[in-house]
Design a protein around this nucleic acid. Sequence first.
DNA 1: CGGAATCCTCTCCGATACTG
DNA 2: CAGTATCGGAGAGGATTCCG
Lengths: 125, 125
Amino acid sequence: MTEDDAHRHEWVADCRLRAATDLFAHTWDPVVLAALRLGPRRRRELRAAIGGISDKVLTDSLHRLLAGGLVERHAHAEAPPRVDYALTGLGQSLVDGPMTALGRWVTEHGEELLEAQESSTAEGL
Amino acid sequence: MTEDDAHRHEWVADCRLRAATDLFAHTWDPVVLAALRLGPRRRRELRAAIGGISDKVLTDSLHRLLAGGLVERHAHAEAPPRVDYALTGLGQSLVDGPMTALGRWVTEHGEELLEAQESSTAEGL
DNA sequence: CGGAATCCTCTCCGATACTG
DNA sequence: CAGTATCGGAGAGGATTCCG
């Protein structure tokens, strides 16, 4: 690893960017964040709103987002257990900034993207 | 799958957003795009500029980006084979828009993100 | 130099079943 | 309703090797 130090300065600048892109590495994490965009949601509401996510994967995703400081967990001590999840300030800023920008890009270039992908898969077969 | 159609309208709206977040799902794809940000690069230059990427992974990444219409390949018929890769208009728009927004977010909240991640891993042990 | 092929490892995703 | 435990499959990433 010592010789790699010579290269390190070349990509260390992108290290923080990597930490950010990794937030999108897990398929469902952005979807969960998007589902929390409009306010706190209970576990069950998230499952229903997202649709097609398994129980375990939702748990994994929430744990990662909690560990990343993007989501907060609030457990209410009630007879029927009630727990809801909400974006932290950090998570909200991620949604309002980059994810919104990505959403705008999709509305502008989404068609173009899908066309390019389809045309190449058509050739690829 | 037929009963899922009832749920489909709930998340189909996020389908395009998913197609976009998937562009960041593969670890090295954003890095390669970032490396092409300032202009066309040869395969070897990319490997050196990125640092720490294996040959196969770079090939895979380039193939995905080519298939997605984000990158173009230009092969020059010369004695020493010369091939360079460049962003397409679509790829450039992705870099200029969402990726730049993500970069801005990182400069503003990167510290906060790393702190949150470290503090939780410290607890987690 | 560009790049395809092989093999290995790791972890993400999904389904199922069980506990508080 | 919230959350955990386990198992299996699929795919990404990494190292190495060989071809044009």
